[in-house]
């Protein structure tokens, strides 16, 4: 592993996209970041406000028709190489909203997903597990 690869592994910045989620997964993401019990900052992660700073993007929600174009545009704004993580069963398969009228998902019809985190919502440890997997994928891409 090269020096830069080691550096990249220890500083993955996270960005969240809500693709029509019920906010359950978003709450768990906030929990993962903010409460002392599950501290993602010790992995070097940092939630950033701008998609241009992001390395790993976490997408929640089943991709509703209204947000589809916005989500795709936002995703395009994130510089390569990026790793896309689908958090919760909605972006993975549609979950309980599958085959619903306003649902354009699952997400991998439109975007290349790298890591899936199962759960409805996933518990914070599962999200951390997913982020750890995403970091592996990300360092392989450098």
């Amino acid at each position: 592993m090269g020096f830069m690869q080691k550096v990249f592994r220890r500083s993955p910045w996270l960005y969240r996209i809500n693709a029509g989620s019920c906010n359950g997964c978003d709450v768990e993401l906030a929990t993962t970041a903010c409460i002392p019990r599950y501290d993602v900052e010790r992995l070097g992660c940092q939630y950033c406000g701008s998609p241009k700073h992001a390395d790993i993007v976490l997408i929640t929600g089943p991709l509703t028709a209204r947000v589809k174009d916005k989500v795709l545009r936002l995703w395009e704004e994130i510089p390569d190489p990026k790793v896309t993580v689908a958090v919760g069963i909605c972006p993975i398969s549609g979950g309980v909203f599958r085959d619903g009228l306003p649902i354009e998902g699952p997400l991998d019809r439109w975007l290349p997903i790298d890591v899936n985190v199962q759960g409805c919502p996933p518990r914070p440890q599962a999200i951390i597990e997913g982020i750890a997997k995403a970091i592996e994928v990300w360092s392989d891409r450098q």
């Binding site: 991998d108 997903i113 890591v115 985190v117 199962q118 759960g119 599962a126 597990e129 997913g130």
Partner: peptide
């Protein structure tokens, strides 16, 4: 068991 995060 919740270890279900997986690659695509």
């Amino acid at each position: 068991d919740w270890h279900m995060a997986h690659l695509q």
